[in-house]
Protein backbone atom coordinates (compact mmCIF):
# COMPACT_ATOMS: atom_id res chain seq x y z
CA UNK A 1 0.00 0.00 0.00
CA UNK A 2 1.35 3.41 -0.99
CA UNK A 3 0.35 6.55 0.91
CA UNK A 4 1.49 9.86 -0.57
CA UNK A 5 -0.39 13.08 -1.19
CA UNK A 6 1.70 13.85 -4.25
CA UNK A 7 0.06 12.11 -7.27
CA UNK A 8 3.26 11.94 -9.31
CA UNK A 9 5.14 10.31 -6.46
CA UNK A 10 2.32 7.95 -5.65
CA UNK A 11 2.19 6.80 -9.26
CA UNK A 12 5.97 6.53 -9.58
CA UNK A 13 6.31 4.42 -6.44
CA UNK A 14 3.35 2.28 -7.41
CA UNK A 15 4.75 1.74 -10.90
CA UNK A 16 8.19 0.82 -9.56
CA UNK A 17 6.77 -1.65 -7.09
CA UNK A 18 4.52 -3.28 -9.70
CA UNK A 19 7.34 -3.43 -12.26
CA UNK A 20 9.39 -5.30 -9.69
CA UNK A 21 6.62 -7.87 -9.33
CA UNK A 22 5.20 -6.60 -6.06
CA UNK A 23 1.47 -6.26 -5.66
CA UNK A 24 0.12 -2.85 -4.71
CA UNK A 25 -3.13 -3.56 -2.88
CA UNK A 26 -4.10 0.04 -2.30
CA UNK A 27 -3.10 3.67 -2.53
CA UNK A 28 -4.14 6.67 -0.47
CA UNK A 29 -3.57 10.40 -0.78
CA UNK A 30 -4.04 11.37 2.86
CA UNK A 31 -4.22 9.98 6.37
CA UNK A 32 -7.98 9.59 6.36
CA UNK A 33 -8.00 7.59 3.13
CA UNK A 34 -5.11 5.49 4.38
CA UNK A 35 -6.91 4.54 7.61
CA UNK A 36 -10.19 3.91 5.74
CA UNK A 37 -8.60 1.63 3.13
CA UNK A 38 -6.10 -0.14 5.36
CA UNK A 39 -8.42 -2.75 6.96
CA UNK A 40 -9.77 -3.98 3.60
CA UNK A 41 -6.47 -3.80 1.72
CA UNK A 42 -4.54 -5.72 4.40
CA UNK A 43 -1.09 -4.84 3.03
CA UNK A 44 2.12 -6.44 4.32
CA UNK A 45 4.03 -3.23 3.81
CA UNK A 46 2.87 0.37 3.86
CA UNK A 47 5.12 2.85 2.07
CA UNK A 48 4.23 6.06 3.84
CA UNK A 49 5.01 9.72 3.28
CA UNK A 50 5.17 11.62 6.57
CA UNK A 51 3.90 14.92 5.23
CA UNK A 52 0.33 14.05 4.30
CA UNK A 53 -2.97 15.82 5.05
CA UNK A 54 -4.28 14.93 8.50
CA UNK A 55 -3.97 12.59 10.23
CA UNK A 56 -0.24 12.81 9.57
CA UNK A 57 2.19 10.00 8.89
CA UNK A 58 3.10 9.51 12.55
CA UNK A 59 -0.53 9.15 13.59
CA UNK A 60 -1.28 6.83 10.69
CA UNK A 61 1.72 4.66 11.63
CA UNK A 62 0.59 4.38 15.25
CA UNK A 63 -2.97 3.51 14.27
CA UNK A 64 -2.24 0.87 11.63
CA UNK A 65 0.39 -0.81 13.78
CA UNK A 66 -2.16 -0.90 16.58
CA UNK A 67 -4.73 -2.53 14.26
CA UNK A 68 -2.28 -5.00 12.78
CA UNK A 69 0.99 -5.46 14.65
CA UNK A 70 2.37 -7.57 11.79
CA UNK A 71 2.22 -4.75 9.25
CA UNK A 72 5.56 -3.17 8.26
CA UNK A 73 5.78 0.57 7.75
CA UNK A 74 8.47 2.06 5.52
CA UNK A 75 8.71 5.83 5.82
CA UNK A 76 9.51 7.58 2.55
CA UNK A 77 10.04 11.21 3.34
CA UNK A 78 11.09 14.22 1.29
CA UNK A 79 11.86 16.90 3.79
CA UNK A 80 13.49 14.68 6.38
CA UNK A 81 11.84 16.43 9.32
CA UNK A 82 14.04 14.80 11.89
CA UNK A 83 11.70 14.80 14.87
CA UNK A 84 8.86 13.45 12.72
CA UNK A 85 11.02 10.59 11.52
CA UNK A 86 11.94 9.70 15.07
CA UNK A 87 8.30 9.89 16.16
CA UNK A 88 7.24 7.63 13.29
CA UNK A 89 9.92 5.11 14.23
CA UNK A 90 8.82 5.20 17.86
CA UNK A 91 5.22 4.71 16.69
CA UNK A 92 6.24 1.46 15.02
CA UNK A 93 7.76 2.17 11.60
CA UNK A 94 10.67 -0.17 10.87
CA UNK A 95 12.21 1.54 7.88
CA UNK A 96 13.11 5.00 6.70
CA UNK A 97 14.26 6.19 3.31
CA UNK A 98 14.65 9.66 1.85
CA UNK A 99 12.85 10.31 -1.40
CA UNK A 100 16.08 11.00 -3.21
CA UNK A 101 16.94 7.31 -2.87
CA UNK A 102 17.10 5.40 -6.13
CA UNK A 103 14.54 2.95 -7.40
CA UNK A 104 16.77 0.02 -6.48
CA UNK A 105 17.22 1.33 -2.96
CA UNK A 106 13.45 1.65 -2.60
CA UNK A 107 12.79 -1.87 -3.84
CA UNK A 108 15.48 -3.33 -1.61
CA UNK A 109 14.08 -1.42 1.34
CA UNK A 110 10.51 -2.63 0.70
CA UNK A 111 11.69 -6.24 0.38
CA UNK A 112 13.81 -6.08 3.50
CA UNK A 113 11.11 -4.39 5.56
CA UNK A 114 8.57 -7.00 4.43
CA UNK A 115 10.90 -9.73 5.72
CA UNK A 116 10.82 -8.12 9.12
CA UNK A 117 14.17 -6.47 8.73
CA UNK A 118 14.78 -2.90 9.77
CA UNK A 119 15.97 -0.41 7.20
CA UNK A 120 18.19 2.21 8.70
CA UNK A 121 19.73 5.15 6.95
CA UNK A 122 22.84 6.57 8.59
CA UNK A 123 20.74 9.62 9.39
CA UNK A 124 18.14 7.57 11.25
CA UNK A 125 20.83 5.70 13.17
CA UNK A 126 22.22 9.06 14.29
CA UNK A 127 18.76 10.13 15.46
CA UNK A 128 18.19 6.90 17.36
CA UNK A 129 21.60 7.16 19.03
CA UNK A 130 20.78 10.72 20.01
CA UNK A 131 17.37 9.65 21.36
CA UNK A 132 18.91 6.97 23.61
CA UNK A 133 21.43 9.50 24.94
CA UNK A 134 18.65 11.98 25.64
CA UNK A 135 16.66 9.28 27.43
CA UNK A 136 19.59 8.29 29.61
CA UNK A 137 20.42 11.93 30.39
CA UNK A 138 16.78 12.75 31.06
CA UNK A 139 15.13 13.33 34.42
CA UNK A 140 13.84 9.73 34.48
CA UNK A 141 17.39 8.41 34.63
CA UNK A 142 16.63 6.41 37.73
CA UNK A 143 13.47 5.03 36.18
CA UNK A 144 14.26 1.40 35.41
CA UNK A 145 11.81 1.51 32.49
CA UNK A 146 14.09 3.76 30.47
CA UNK A 147 15.50 1.73 27.61
CA UNK A 148 19.26 1.56 27.29
CA UNK A 149 21.52 0.24 24.61
CA UNK A 150 24.05 -2.44 25.38
CA UNK A 151 27.62 -1.61 24.50
CA UNK A 152 27.43 -3.86 21.48
CA UNK A 153 24.21 -2.29 20.26
CA UNK A 154 25.71 1.19 20.59
CA UNK A 155 28.76 0.04 18.67
CA UNK A 156 26.66 -1.45 15.88
CA UNK A 157 24.35 1.55 15.68
CA UNK A 158 27.33 3.91 15.49
CA UNK A 159 28.69 1.93 12.57
CA UNK A 160 25.33 2.09 10.81
CA UNK A 161 25.37 5.85 11.37
CA UNK A 162 28.81 5.94 9.79
CA UNK A 163 27.33 4.42 6.66
CA UNK A 164 28.70 0.90 7.05
CA UNK A 165 26.69 -1.97 5.60
CA UNK A 166 25.63 -4.88 7.82
CA UNK A 167 28.19 -6.97 5.98
CA UNK A 168 31.01 -4.55 6.75
CA UNK A 169 29.92 -4.33 10.38
CA UNK A 170 29.78 -8.11 10.67
CA UNK A 171 33.31 -8.34 9.30
CA UNK A 172 34.70 -5.61 11.50
CA UNK A 173 33.16 -6.97 14.70
CA UNK A 174 33.56 -10.61 13.72
CA UNK A 175 29.87 -11.32 14.08
CA UNK A 176 27.37 -13.03 11.83
CA UNK A 177 25.27 -10.93 9.51
CA UNK A 178 22.16 -12.13 11.33
CA UNK A 179 23.52 -11.04 14.71
CA UNK A 180 24.19 -7.54 13.41
CA UNK A 181 20.64 -7.41 12.10
CA UNK A 182 19.28 -8.52 15.45
CA UNK A 183 21.24 -5.87 17.28
CA UNK A 184 19.90 -3.17 14.99
CA UNK A 185 16.34 -4.44 15.31
CA UNK A 186 16.62 -4.51 19.08
CA UNK A 187 17.51 -0.85 19.21
CA UNK A 188 14.23 0.03 17.52
CA UNK A 189 12.15 -2.53 19.37
CA UNK A 190 13.21 -1.17 22.75
CA UNK A 191 12.41 2.35 21.69
CA UNK A 192 8.97 1.34 20.38
CA UNK A 193 8.20 -0.64 23.51
CA UNK A 194 9.22 2.29 25.68
CA UNK A 195 6.98 4.55 23.61
CA UNK A 196 4.01 2.21 24.11
CA UNK A 197 4.64 1.99 27.84
CA UNK A 198 4.83 5.78 28.04
CA UNK A 199 1.59 6.16 26.11
CA UNK A 200 -0.18 3.64 28.33
CA UNK A 201 1.13 5.30 31.46
CA UNK A 202 -0.02 8.64 30.12
CA UNK A 203 -3.45 7.21 29.33
CA UNK A 204 -3.79 5.82 32.85
CA UNK A 205 -2.65 9.08 34.42
CA UNK A 206 -5.13 11.02 32.34
CA UNK A 207 -7.90 8.57 33.23
CA UNK A 208 -8.36 7.59 29.60
CA UNK A 209 -8.72 3.96 30.58
CA UNK A 210 -11.70 4.76 32.77
CA UNK A 211 -14.27 3.59 30.23
CA UNK A 212 -13.28 0.00 30.98
CA UNK A 213 -15.54 -0.10 34.00
Amino acid sequence: MVVDDHPMWRDAVERDLQAAGLEVVGVAANGQEALARFPAARPNVVVLDLQIPAPNGVEVTAEIVRQDPSVRVLILSASGEQSDVLDAVKAGATGYLVKSASREELLTAVRRVSQGDTVFTPGLAGLVLGEYRRLSDGPEKTDDGTPQLTERETEVLKMVAKGMSYKQIAERLVLSHRTVQNHVQNTLRKLQLHNRVQLTRYAIEQGLDADDD
Partner: peptide, 8 residues
Protein backbone atom coordinates in the same frame (compact mmCIF):
# COMPACT_ATOMS: atom_id res chain seq x y z
CA UNK B 1 28.87 13.39 2.02
CA UNK B 2 26.22 11.84 4.23
CA UNK B 3 25.60 13.46 7.61
CA UNK B 4 24.06 11.85 10.72
CA UNK B 5 23.32 14.03 13.76
CA UNK B 6 21.39 13.44 17.00
CA UNK B 7 18.55 15.56 15.61
CA UNK B 8 18.94 18.30 18.18
Amino acid sequence: VNVATPGT
